[in-house]
């Protein structure tokens, strides 16, 4: 069975940049552009891993989605899916430094711009854990 990866990001270029190496590595890749689409896709596709952009249409959409999937009161089947969060290097907005990021319920971070080799390495590490 192929491993399914869901990319939730509103930037189609970034989705493409993540999709290319993942597909060539043999993963089946899906994408969603908004918070709502993303939530729906999690249930229909049942991905093995989610790649989530930190800032989507609103500046906190990524955080909200992470909370919904992994935070308190989330469904166990959602909790089981690892989340790799895409962040911007040197983010100086309060987001990165807010106290919440200590318990932001994601499993790993990857910095923008995405380095394909690093992405594949992170993805396989996360998948091995589950």
């Amino acid at each position: 069975m192929t491993i399914k990866i869901l990319i939730i990001d509103d930037d189609p270029d970034l989705v493409l940049a993540a999709r290319m190496p993942l597909e060539q590595a043999g993963y089946e890749v899906f994408s969603a552009g908004t918070l709502e689409e993303g939530l729906a896709a999690v249930d229909t596709i049942k991905p093995n891993l989610i790649i989530l952009d930190v800032m989507m249409d609103t500046h906190t959409a990524g955080f909200q989605l992470a909370q919904k999937l992994h935070g308190a009161g989330a469904k166990p089947e959602h909790q089981a899916i690892p989340i790799l969060m895409v962040t911007a290097v040197h983010q100086t907005t309060p987001l990165r430094f807010s106290p919440d990021d200590d318990y932001l319920p994601v499993d790993a971070f990857i910095d923008k711009p995405i380095d394909p080799k690093t992405l594949l390495a992170q993805v396989s590490t996360l998948l091995q854990k589950t």
Binding site: D13, A17, M20, P21, M55, T93, P113
Partner: peptide
């Protein structure tokens, strides 16, 4: 912060893909 970095981040991510032979 977001508006200036987002296009560069996306552009560079795509460049890395070409450079590493994924395209």
């Amino acid at each position: 912060t977001h508006e200036l970095r987002a296009p560069l981040g996306a552009g560079l991510s795509l460049m890395h893909n070409i450079q590493q032979g994924y395209a």
